[in-house]
Amino acid sequence: MHSRLRFENPSALAHEVVGETLERALRDRSAEGEAAEVLVGTALNDDNAEFVEHWCVQVGMRAVSGSPLLGLAGLCLGHTTRRFGRLSDDALALAESLAVRAEADPRDVDSRAIDGYDDVRSFLHLR
Rank of each mutant, 00 (worst) to 15 (best):
M1W: 13
H2A: 05
S3D: 02
R4L: 04
R6W: 12
F7K: 10
E8D: 09
N9T: 13
N9A: 06
A12K: 07
H15Q: 10
H15A: 08
G19D: 07
E20I: 07
E20W: 02
T21M: 00
R24G: 06
R24C: 06
A25S: 10
A25P: 03
R27C: 14
D28I: 04
D28M: 04
D28T: 03
S30C: 07
A31C: 14
E32L: 09
G33F: 05
G33E: 02
G33C: 01
G33T: 06
A35M: 05
A35H: 00
A36I: 10
E37Q: 09
V38G: 02
V40G: 07
G41P: 04
T42D: 00
L44H: 06
N45L: 02
N45T: 02
D46G: 14
D46R: 08
D47C: 12
D47S: 14
D47I: 09
N48I: 12
N48A: 12
E50S: 09
F51A: 14
F51G: 10
F51D: 03
V52I: 09
E53I: 13
H54P: 12
V57Y: 01
V57F: 02
Q58K: 15
V59E: 13
G60D: 02
G60Y: 08
M61H: 09
M61T: 14
R62E: 09
R62P: 07
A63W: 01
V64K: 04
G66Q: 05
G66F: 05
S67H: 11
P68G: 01
P68T: 05
G71R: 07
L72D: 05
L72T: 08
A73P: 13
A73D: 01
G74C: 10
G74Y: 01
G74K: 05
L75W: 03
C76N: 07
C76P: 01
C76H: 05
L77H: 11
T80Y: 07
T80M: 05
T81R: 12
R82K: 08
F84E: 06
R86T: 15
D90Y: 15
L92W: 02
E96H: 13
E96Q: 10
S97M: 06
A99P: 10
V100L: 15
R101Y: 12
R101C: 07
E103S: 15
R107P: 13
D110G: 15
R112C: 11
I114S: 12
D115E: 14
G116P: 03
D118G: 08
D118Y: 00
D119Y: 15
D119V: 15
D119Q: 11
R121N: 01
S122A: 12
L124S: 03
L126E: 10
